[in-house]
Computed example of a mutant assay.
Amino acid sequence: MADDIRENAMGGGTPKRLRGLDANGNSISPTLEEVISAMGIHTHSFTLAAGEEKDLGNLGYGLYLVTSPNIAISAIFICGALSSSFVSDGGYNAYCDYVDGAKSVVFGRKESNGNFFIKNNRKDAIALRIKGISV
């Protein structure tokens, strides 16, 4: 039988599951993915072929970081319900929203309250990482 360990005597590490209480005070043990989803955090990692576009679903309104190791440039997108977004990539002009649509990587909504998409306008494949917080 395992010895009881006090909460403050537990070691650190990367958890597989967490312990907590639900809204009614019942004990639960959610996975990290369940906690991240409940917090509105989105993470995506994939490679797009030249000219390829991917439907990411409706990510909500929020702040999104899009980066690529291929071009070593990141961009911040602030997205609401509309297809136009605030986009900043430090003046490198590698990223844009669908209102512009002409730069290397296009991210955002095509229509008001629609799904989010990401498109590779480059002639080569590109690895992309997206991290976002939505409300």
Rank of each mutant, 00 (worst) to 15 (best):
A2Q: 10
I5W: 03
R6H: 12
M10S: 08
G12V: 06
G13V: 04
P15I: 10
L18Y: 15
L18Q: 03
D22S: 00
N24M: 12
N24Q: 14
S27K: 13
S29A: 12
L32A: 08
E33W: 05
V35L: 08
I41P: 00
H44G: 06
S45A: 13
S45H: 12
T47R: 11
G51S: 08
D55A: 05
L56N: 01
G60S: 12
Y61D: 15
G62W: 05
L63V: 15
L63I: 15
T67Q: 09
P69M: 05
N70H: 09
S74A: 15
A75V: 11
I76W: 06
F77T: 00
C79A: 15
G80A: 14
L82G: 10
S83P: 04
S85D: 11
F86H: 06
F86R: 04
F86L: 14
D89K: 01
D89E: 06
N93D: 14
A94W: 03
Y95Q: 01
C96T: 04
D97Y: 07
Y98S: 01
Y98G: 05
Y98I: 03
D100F: 00
S104A: 14
F107Y: 13
F107A: 08
G108I: 02
K110M: 06
E111D: 11
S112M: 11
S112N: 12
S112L: 05
N113F: 14
G114H: 07
N115Y: 06
N115R: 03
N115S: 13
F116N: 06
F116D: 01
I118L: 03
N120W: 10
K123T: 14
D124C: 01
I126N: 01
A127N: 09
K131G: 03
K131F: 11
S134T: 11
V135M: 06
